[in-house]
Design a protein around this nucleic acid. Structure first.
Lengths: 221, 221
DNA sequence: CGGGGCCTTGATGCTGTTCAAATAGAGTGG
DNA sequence: CCACTCTATTTGAACAGCATCAAGGCCCCG
């Protein structure tokens, strides 16, 4: 494409922050800290969306009930993640704390006129993060085989939370509803991965990657 | 590709537009109009993302090559849609014109200092639209059966493009890669829907809904 | 010790994939 | 306008993988 335009690459404003941030940076941001018990709801499906959040501690699950009663898990948010940006005026997913002692910072839209710019940047950033996650999730769901999905899921977690033992804040049903497969298939696939020596489970909520190369090969395939 | 006009009309009053827009209204917005032939690329995967676009005429396909050679279709954009917002600094999907004579308006980030605010709002709006589409697509991919996926896909198109005959700008392979199923399953499912009298195909690129209630039931189920 | 989640494991059927081939459709040049 | 070619779509048959139904085991907590 050879077009002569007066386009200028922007110096700032459209550059996303790296996905992983230090906790210090996280805490140094505006917002009202809130605590939630395990399973407690942060906001509900169809609520009016008037704020975004940042996870300070613990993890959060976004889920949605479909017309026929099935449940879809939209995503998981971990320490440092922004969430709560919406395409419309209402919540597409409900969000709940996965851990006891889960803390989030709420950033209210249009709260203080002083910090208006900062809030707008935060909201914009939240939308970008959400978009990235949604696209990642789409790739995951588009994969054909259950082992690819599960392998990719574990790999993503392992990549983010270090090479040692990784704690799974969500249950098997959550994973199933997130990956679009049944809980039985999840269980069998995890069992197979462990039997093949690719990963190792300390308990059903804790795993460790034993052969990263094999896991990556499965995830890509 | 050739440049048609060079309109740098700064949009004054911003307001969220309805999904369907008149062509006139579309053209009254800032941007550089560009024309593409069928199959011509608008931008490539991994390109630097320095502008967003609005479809003026025709339709656009976003697609992505995966490591193992498979192709994933991220979405389709139709007249009036904003596209090209990214979560990161580079393009996650390549985009190509589906029709001959496809026209899009390019809005360069940070182009004119005068319209800076308008551009920022447009980019923000583009991100929101993209997020909404991604979430819709996730719901689609999470559905278990092929008939649900195909029915939902047709219903979405029919809802947007009126009750009469709807033209499909994409081929079967595009639909397959969008829905995460094979082209054979697409073909069989469409055949079944037609045999059941739910839809009717004039040609393989044109259909009409005969029993909207039945289609909706399939889509929800 | 007993109850109730949650997770695992087993057997069977269905749905979609795969491989293969036929048919339809669009474009090209005579 | 027709014959030819190439691609897109449809159709067929066999197989593989996941869902479903069902039962059993594990673990936490009262």
């Amino acid at each position: 494409m050879n077009v002569e335009t007066t386009c200028v690459v922007p110096a700032s404003g459209y550059r996303p922050l790296p996905a992983a941030r230090s906790r210090h940076e996280t805490l140094a941001r505006p917002g009202i800290a809130l605590s939630f018990k395990e399973g407690e709801q942060i906001y509900d499906q169809d609520d009016h969306a008037d704020r975004v959040y940042r996870v300070i501690r613990g993890s959060v699950r976004a889920s949605r009930l479909l017309a026929d009663g099935r449940r879809q898990v939209g995503g998981f948010y971990y320490e440092g993640d922004l969430f709560g940006a919406e395409a419309g005026a209402t919540r597409r997913y409900a969000t709940e704390a996965l851990d006891g002692g889960c803390q989030v910072a709420a950033i209210c839209l249009g709260s203080s006129a002083v910090a208006k710019d900062a809030v707008e940047r935060l909201v914009s950033q939240a939308a970008r993060e959400e978009l990235g996650r949604a696209q990642e999730h789409m790739s995951l769901l588009a994969r054909t085989s259950a082992s690819e999905k599960v392998a990719t899921f574990l790999l993503t977690l392992a990549t983010r939370f270090g090479p040692a033992w990784v704690h799974l804040p969500m249950g098997r049903q959550d994973m199933a509803d997130y990956l679009g497969i049944t809980i039985e298939t999840i269980s069998r696939t995890l069992g197979r991965l462990q039997a093949d020596g690719v990963v190792e489970f300390g308990s059903c909520r804790e795993f460790r990657v034993k052969r990263p190369d094999a896991l990556e090969r499965l995830a890509l395939a």
